[in-house]
Write a protein that binds this DNA or RNA. Sequence first.
DNA 1: CGCGCCCTTGACCAGACTCAATATTAGTGG
DNA 2: CCACTAATATTGAGTCTGGTCAAGGGCGCG
Lengths: 232, 232
Amino acid sequence: MDAQVADTIIRDDIEIDLTAIKLAEEGARAPQLTRLAPHTIVFFEGDEATQVYQVVEGAVMLYKLLPDGRRQVVELLSPGDLFGLTVGTYYDCSAETLSNARVRGFDRRLCDRSSDLMSLMCRHLQEQLGAMREHAVLLGRKSAMERLASFLMRLALGRTIDDADQIILPDSEHVVQLSMTRQEIADYLGLTIETVSRSFSELRRRGLVSFDRQDKVRIKDLSAMNELTGAL
Amino acid sequence: MDAQVADTIIRDDIEIDLTAIKLAEEGARAPQLTRLAPHTIVFFEGDEATQVYQVVEGAVMLYKLLPDGRRQVVELLSPGDLFGLTVGTYYDCSAETLSNARVRGFDRRLCDRSSDLMSLMCRHLQEQLGAMREHAVLLGRKSAMERLASFLMRLALGRTIDDADQIILPDSEHVVQLSMTRQEIADYLGLTIETVSRSFSELRRRGLVSFDRQDKVRIKDLSAMNELTGAL
DNA sequence: CGCGCCCTTGACCAGACTCAATATTAGTGG
DNA sequence: CCACTAATATTGAGTCTGGTCAAGGGCGCG
């Protein structure tokens, strides 16, 4: 499987073969699959944006920093997601792995050559934009508890919340692997580490979650959790 | 000029003629230019996404609502910007004019036909995504004053902040037309109307701004204002 | 088993929110 | 042109959520 997809882009069901494009593009480097340890920086904000990447396995986060060190995690990426796209010459945020991950990098110029790739990009960009808008609501209008509940629900249900066939079984338990430190969760939710910790404790006190490990949350009442998100 | 561009898409410098695509597409409705009064709803979140729009003149905002009425304005659009794009069947947010505006709507299916249009869309999506990430930092990590200062700076400098040739003259005055109520500004910045008002008053007290009218701000010290944004 | 890192908890503080009263403004019609 | 009105904005007082600072606890890894 690994070798087979080495020169393809993951697309929900279909896979686009990059070989043809690659061969036509003598100057372009071949798509490269890299295995990365947790907390490896893929690129920094401000680096020259020569490569576009796709998550093949594991999780990657994108974040921005303010000069005084405040950090905002702006996106969480899963397998299939593209990152490193930008209109300008430089990356507009930093990219770092959260877990063990495999990432495929390919030459940025490839994007302009293939209309298949272009339409794939368009789709992904639209999805990311939709996710960002949802996140803007969370950051701008939700309380700490609502933010954490929304975060847990998103992890529990997967990111395809729009699919109508996602049926929430009222009393089914879901175990969620966080693979993020409290600090990273805080920086994603626009909170402090202490507030995240307190909110988790509050959820535990109310019997809504329990911890198998610090980074393994058992959600014991999904529909109650859903109530807390503030969303419908 | 109006008639001339009636069937074209504004692209920073170039203009794409939609006529060819339109004619090939007998089922598609012709691009339609509409004149809208301030605070006209173009579409609601949840409406079926049949049309894609482009702002021709004026300003449009995109927002999302929580069931309890909390609102988050997720994007401010200027002439040239596209909106109404979505992967799903339904719009993921509502669109409303802020000022008198002209908007061009065209059939969503056109987007898949033209690779020119596709690459234009890609570019716009990337720009919007970049703007959203910047906004996520504002919402997640900035104080009320920093949010308002960032907002004013963005309006003063225009949205092309990435252009290096934007030189900030230290003591040049900039007059900014808000064309938004305090409530709309608050909903954009993730604050309450009172906090926005207080922050404006604070800026006035410090001599950084004065008001020609409620919605016309004279920024008297751009570099001091820039200091307040929290960004470099 | 022990060390270090991360997480949790507590006490206190501050910035932003809420509620309420007042002041401005822009728009309307006499 | 001015007075009136309704909508919008400002200001104040008090509360509360979440941030800050600081101390302890627990977990995982070597």
